[in-house]
């Protein structure tokens, strides 16, 4: 390669890096640096009235995940925070399972419609994504509250009294399902749409019934979409703040609310930072295992 060409290429690369620089700088200064500071705060001593004492280090925040300091300064095992982590994981798993249960048949239904109808239905699936989450969660308060519309609706069927599920785990799950269902339907639909349906026809020709065809051909081929959807539902559920706050009513706390509390009334920034860091680590771990498992270049259908 001639030096002239090399020099030209180097110039072009410099040019391209210069173009990317402003966005990178913005994200570097206002996202990466803050995450670094968060990590630092998690190992600092908390201030007496919120904030932190810069320069005074302590692992108190991480210790308090498991232990509580008694009056005489001895450590007592305490599972309060662990329980909230466990509840968040559990509610997110249930939400993901529910999304899969409703989302897969819906995606299959969409994939089997003719084009015009399919486009319209797809549009209807995406509309909620463009509308305000807070407002849609608020609508569920109207529906679920005592004497709300769900209760009146049940009254029509002769069920008297109140379901009383607002401000409970059940209400949080309904809210999470409602908010994240489209995130399950869309990726599954995408992989079903790309699917070679002649393979399914071949299965039928070979004597498979619908159930077998679904089990042995359609579901395995849709696996990339199912996994992507699972991740897209599970991750935002785990760290959600709005839904447990409004529908759980402070009784059904999740990690997000616990973090918020440390910056609000609890005035414990180091603990809040440590909790946020653990949540981030969980999410990155999930993404990493997804990438290792499913993003390999030569991906077999049976991933």
């Amino acid at each position: 390669m001639s030096t002239l060409q090399q020099r030209q290429q180097a110039r072009q690369l410099r040019h391209r890096l210069l173009l990317s620089a402003p966005a990178m700088a913005m994200l570097g200064v206002f996202l990466l640096v803050p995450l670094g500071i968060m990590l630092l705060v998690s190992v600092l001593q908390g201030g007496d009235y919120g904030g932190v004492k810069w320069g005074e280090y302590s692992f108190e925040a991480y210790v308090s995940f498991f232990y509580e300091r008694d009056l005489d300064d001895s450590l007592v095992f305490n599972t309060d925070y662990l329980q909230i982590f466990q509840r968040s994981l559990w509610l997110s798993v249930l939400t993901t399972a529910g999304c899969l249960l409703i989302g897969f048949p819906t995606a299959l239904y969409l994939a089997l419609q003719d084009e015009k109808r399919r486009n319209l239905l797809l549009f209807l699936v995406t509309v909620p994504f463009w509308t305000n989450l807070l407002v849609r969660v608020y609508a569920w308060i109207l529906l679920l509250r005592n004497g709300g519309l769900v209760d009146s609706g049940l009254g029509l069927f002769g069920f008297d009294g109140s379901l009383g599920i607002l401000y409970s785990d059940a209400a949080v799950i309904v809210g999470l399902l409602y908010s994240f269902l489209p995130f399950m339907v869309l990726p599954i639909y995408t992989s079903l749409e790309k699917l070679d349906w002649r393979l399914v026809e071949a299965a039928f020709d070979l004597g498979a019934n619908r159930r077998k065809a679904l089990q042995r051909v359609i579901v395995p081929l849709a696996m990339p979409g199912i996994v992507a959807g699972t991740l897209l539902v599970f991750i935002p559920s785990l760290g959600n703040y709005i839904i447990p706050e409004l529908l759980g009513g402070g009784k059904s706390l999740m990690i997000g609310n616990l973090i918020q509390l440390q910056f609000g009334t609890a005035h414990n920034w180091p603990l809040g930072a440590a909790l946020a860091f653990v949540l981030l680590a969980l999410v990155l771990l999930a993404m990493l295992s997804y990438n290792l498992r499913f993003r390999q270049p030569a991906m077999e259908g049976h991933a």
Binding site: M24, L27, Y241
Partner: peptide, 27 residues
Amino acid sequence: LMGGVLGLPLLIPEIVTAVATLMFFSF
């Protein structure tokens, strides 16, 4: 790596970005 950083805000839970940014401004 640069592409990853550009997509990072989509990956990080909102609550984490929120508290990290708050602490940064305070810092």
